[in-house]
Amino acid sequence: MATEDAGIYAREFDVIDRYIQIGVASSKVLRVTFPETPEEGALSEHPVLDRLEAYLTAREEDGFDDVQVALTVPTDQRRVLESVRDVPFGKSIDMDALTRMTSGLSHEDDADLETVRTALRENPAPIFVPDHRIGNAPGATPPDVAERLRSIEGL
């Protein structure tokens, strides 16, 4: 993505029965949402949306590892979301495993578990930070979309 791509982009995807809208700035994805209608003025052409289309139609496995995401969240939550990005396409882990693999957190500490839940719920970039790959935990991806993404990945 180039810096000149800054803006709001959205495309409708029949496979999830809604739009995926991305906010991009400084060559990074800032936010991903799943609106029923896109923001006024959103453009439909962006290379990331092309990749999403290939992924959603199961034409191409894509972990989106190279998509830069601006995680403007508190440090402890950012560490959790960076760990989520380490879960590869077609794999799923539970919240306990995610907590264990996140530096500085303990799966036995209630406050740390709440940090993980909060990070997943407030994930600004679902799909690129694939919270749908974390079982038994809340995520920012709408449940029906998460179910479809898991199906695409064979989870």
Rank of each mutant, 00 (worst) to 15 (best):
T57C: 11
T75P: 12
V69I: 09
D76G: 09
Q21P: 06
P47R: 09
D66A: 01
G139F: 03
R117E: 14
Q68A: 15
I93K: 13
L120M: 09
R117W: 08
G63M: 03
D62P: 10
R133N: 10
D76V: 13
D62F: 08
T141W: 00
R150P: 09
A111L: 06
T37Q: 14
T57P: 07
R79T: 01
V29N: 00
R78A: 15
G23A: 10
R100G: 15
E82L: 14
P143R: 02
F128W: 06
I134W: 05
G41W: 07
V129N: 01
G23K: 11
A125H: 06
D112S: 07
G154L: 08
P126K: 02
E122C: 08
E61K: 14
E108Q: 07
T118N: 15
E36Q: 14
D14C: 01
T102C: 05
T99Y: 06
E45Q: 02
P47L: 05
A42S: 15
R148Y: 15
S26K: 13
E39K: 13
E147Y: 00
A54W: 00
F13G: 09
A54M: 10
E39L: 08
V29D: 00
N136P: 12
K91G: 07
G41A: 11
D112N: 14
R78S: 12
V69M: 04
A119E: 08
V32H: 03
V32A: 04
L30Q: 15
T99S: 15
M1Q: 09
V73Q: 02
A25T: 15
I93C: 06
P142G: 02
P47Q: 12
D131L: 01
A2V: 12
E147C: 03
L49M: 11
E45W: 02
Q77R: 10
R121A: 12
R18G: 11
L43P: 00
D62R: 08
P124N: 00
D112E: 04
L120K: 07
V73E: 01
T99R: 13
P35M: 01
T37S: 15
V129G: 03
A125N: 08
E39D: 15
V145L: 12
D62Y: 09
P38Y: 11
D66H: 01
E114V: 02
D14L: 01
E122V: 04
R117S: 15
A111N: 02
D112T: 07
D94S: 11
A25Y: 06
V73D: 01
I8K: 03
M101Q: 14
Y9V: 04
T3F: 09
S151L: 10
D94G: 11
K91P: 05
V129K: 00
D62E: 11
V29K: 02
D94V: 03
G41P: 04
R150V: 04
D94Y: 04
E53G: 09
R11K: 15
D86H: 10
E108T: 05
A140V: 00
D94R: 04
A97M: 13
A10K: 05
E147W: 05
I127A: 01
G23C: 05
R133I: 03
T72V: 13
R117K: 13
E39Y: 05
V15Y: 01
E122T: 14
E39N: 04
A137V: 13
E53Y: 07
L81Y: 04
G41D: 08
E53P: 04
